[in-house]
Amino acid sequence: MTALELVCPAGTPAALKAAVSSGADAVYLGFRDATNARNFPGLNFSRDELQQGIDHAHDNGCKIFLAINTFPTAGDSTAWHQAVDDGASLGVDAVILADIGMLDYASRKHPDLRRHLSVQASASNPEAIRFYQDAFDVKRVVLPRVLSVAEIAALNKEIDVETEVFVFGGLCVMAEGRCALSSYATGQSPNTNGVCSPACAVRYDEDENGRMVSKLGDFTINAFEADEAAGYPTLCKGRFVANGEASYLFEDPVSLNAASILPDLAKAGVTGLKIEGRQRGKAYIAKVVTSFRRAVDSMDDGAVVETDLTEITEGQRKTAGAYQKTWR
């Protein structure tokens, strides 16, 4: 069994430094534009910042993965191609791509640049993964968060490519890269704009009963009593009414925390453990990375370490998500 690699997010140079000093094996990040799936205001890296980030990471034995994981706009792929070209020339350790056209471009233009398949490509089965491997020489696949641990183990037996799975953070309940809910309500989606439920479409209003109502575009996503913990109105984490009953129809406001099943994931043949949260602050990064570094290191000694990350968890609740089959 090879050592598990801890792959950590960074939305700013400060977050990158926090990840590196907290024990990340690799940091993934994106440029400050629509080429990556966390295209949030004030977030991400300029070319200069990336260069400094690469230097800092490499000096500390940490890799840099550049996420270019949105789908280029028809008729205007320039920014995406430029992102790959710049990543290659700046010396990133891998690019994380989702779009077939982009994989085709990168494999022809930069054959020596290591390619990872983004979770946004939603490659959930051996035939799809083999396709990306055969066609574009993809070295690692980030698995969509739809698979159970048993399915991941079965999958790894059928493929000959590294796999990476999410172990902590925000949880997409839909198959990644195959969800247009956000653009239906706001006009912007992960695939096209690199944002889900964008902040520019978010409003918090107080209603006549003193409840805080969160809206996304023209739609009410949730309402909170005065003493109730509030959530960011991510569409699939909202409360809706079906058959006359209001509920968290898609998912409760919970975060993924797979810390307790790290040994199972290792046994299932996984290579990379990915932490979600490029949009979150350096405090979050430092805390989560430190916690998982300790969990991974102590796993090597045969121990399971409980992570206490409740306070930075959305809704202050955690789930092992689709890794448990009953989640479905």
């Binding site: 909170f224 913990a229 979150r280 602050g281 350096k282």
Partner: peptide, 12 residues
């Protein structure tokens, strides 16, 4: 920077 952007919304 001791609390992050998302956490800001998780509490009132």
């Amino acid at each position: 920077g001791r609390i992050d952007g998302d956490a800001m919304f998780f509490s009132r």
